[in-house]
């Protein structure tokens, strides 16, 4: 395999990003993930599921007056990114997402066949 073309790959994944805090809660029907992404408008949030990899990315967009100089910065990068590996029993095609006031809520249901079933054991 050779790659001679000097094309510089310029993707978002190459840039440094902040790790947003998350809560992951599982119940019988699936997994709910909450992520804190303050400063990200709805149109700058990117969610992607590829194979079994879930990527959450968001770009921070703050209104800033011209000529502002930062004197103290705890949020020091303009984007968030976090990647999770999903397990097989989750149904990636039925993921639903809500995003409001900087909080993302992702619901990832379990596939039908993976939902718990009560198995009756008959004693003879």
């Amino acid at each position: 395999m050779s790659d001679t073309t000097p094309v510089k790959k310029q993707s978002v994944a190459d840039d440094a990003a902040l790790l947003p805090p998350v809560d992951v809660i599982e119940d019988a029907s699936g997994i709910t993930l909450y992520a804190d992404l303050p400063g990200v408008p709805k149109d700058r949030l990117h969610l992607q599921i590829e194979a079994d990899t879930l990527t959450i990315e968001g770009e921070i967009d703050l209104e800033m007056p011209g000529g502002m100089e930062a004197s103290h910065a705890e949020v020091s990068l303009p984007r968030y990114r976090r990647v999770f590996t999903l397990s097989k029993e989750l149904d990636a095609s039925k993921v639903t997402a809500e995003f409001s006031e900087g909080v993302l809520k992702l619901s990832i249901p379990k596939a039908e066949h993976a939902q718990p079933r009560k198995i009756e054991v008959r004693v003879t």
Binding site: D36, G39, L62, G67, M68, A70, E74, E101, V103
Partner: peptide, 20 residues
């Protein structure tokens, strides 16, 4: 919340990252 503080000659700007 995490905070960023900055300033211009006209104002002081404080950003508090307090989602939800």
């Amino acid at each position: 919340p995490a905070m960023n503080v900055g300033g211009t000659p006209q104002s002081v700007e404080i950003y508090a990252f307090a989602p939800g």
